[in-house]
């Protein structure tokens, strides 16, 4: 009755060999392709560095005005504009301007990547149930697996630095973009699609003139969530070398600097709220024609 009380686990040796062979395999892979992969991501790194430098070189009043203008364009709400400007000013006043610029630049690059990758994947997914049934479980895994777990292979492959951090953030933040693009396109009114067919629209004409425009509110909800999730990932990403507001938080944890942790944490929250309000109110304005509010 041994087998009943004792779990039939793999022998200790076998288990060690099993793990070793996986590690070895991946190490070999890294040794062979690591450099190629690194050079593949080189342009991305250059872009990120360029953007970060640009933001740091921008005089602070100009940056605040630019954000305020963006907020106005997106929301047409004075509250959002003033709120954004004041909180940015406070962040700078409390000595976190440079870290904030780094964080903003990585969020911007990450969002661009998530849209650039997520939109096409979402579109493909919406067009075929097969694709949907393949991609959905992958997204589920991406969203539930603890982020530390995929940090390991990323770091093994690319070392510590901005690019692996970026990749980790993208893996974490891209699923809502894909899901909501897929959902948005699938929810487009069947009758409107039939009308497009009846007028002889090609699949491409249908996609760009009907499906994407009508899915835009959902797509925008996806962008919004993607931004929120990448901000949430900033602290973890700083463990593998991403500069920005996450690093002081990390330092504060190991040294028990309460005020430092709190301030940087609040700065992340402030950024999140600014990004959120701007993207959400833009998404809402996209929908304004639906109810006919201007009547």
């Amino acid at each position: 009755m041994d087998w009943f009380t004792e779990f039939p686990e793999l022998g200790r040796r076998d288990l060690r060999d099993f793990r070793k062979s996986i590690d070895q395999g991946f190490k070999d892979f890294t040794r062979t392709y690591g450099e190629d992969i690194e050079s593949f991501f080189e342009p991305l790194l250059q872009f990120l560095i360029w953007l970060e430098k640009l933001l740091l070189a921008t005089p602070w009043p100009l940056f605040i005005v630019a954000v305020a203008a963006l907020a106005w364009f997106a929301s047409r709400s004075l509250r959002v504009v003033v709120g954004s400007a004041v909180s940015l000013f406070l962040i700078g006043f409390l000595g976190m301007w440079e870290d904030t610029m780094s964080t903003v630049s990585i969020i911007v690059v990450c969002t661009i990547l998530c849209i650039g990758l997520g939109l096409p994947v979402g579109i493909v997914m919406s067009r075929s149930d097969r694709a949907q049934s393949v991609v959905t479980p992958i997204l589920d895994i991406m969203q539930t697996i603890p982020s530390f777990v995929y940090l390991i292979p990323v770091v093994m492959l690319l070392g510590i630095g901005k690019v692996p951090g970026l990749i980790a953030v993208v893996i974490y933040a891209i699923p809502p973009m894909i899901r909501l693009t897929n959902l948005g396109i699938r929810l487009v009114d069947k009758e409107v699609l039939e009308a497009a067919d009846a007028f002889g629209a090609s699949p491409w004409q249908k996609l760009v003139r009907v499906q994407i425009p009508l899915a835009l509110p959902n797509i925008f909800a996806g962008v919004n969530q993607t931004i929120m999730m990448s901000l949430a990932m900033v602290v973890i990403a700083s463990m593998i070398g991403v500069t920005g507001l996450g690093q002081p938080v990390l330092k504060a944890i190991s040294n028990q600097y309460l005020a430092m942790g709190l301030l940087n944490g609040l700065a992340i929250v402030a950024l999140a709220i600014i990004f959120d309000r701007i993207s959400q109110s833009y998404g809402k304005r996209l929908q304004s024609h639906r109810g006919g509010q201007d009547e």
């Binding site: 409107v192 039939e194 009846a198 007028f199 002889g200 024609h289 639906r290």
Partner: peptide, 20 residues
Amino acid sequence: RDFRRNRASMVFQRFALLPH
């Protein structure tokens, strides 16, 4: 497609206009 574009057009019960 050409036939639908140029030779037959359609009007729908629930209008099927593009809301945006």
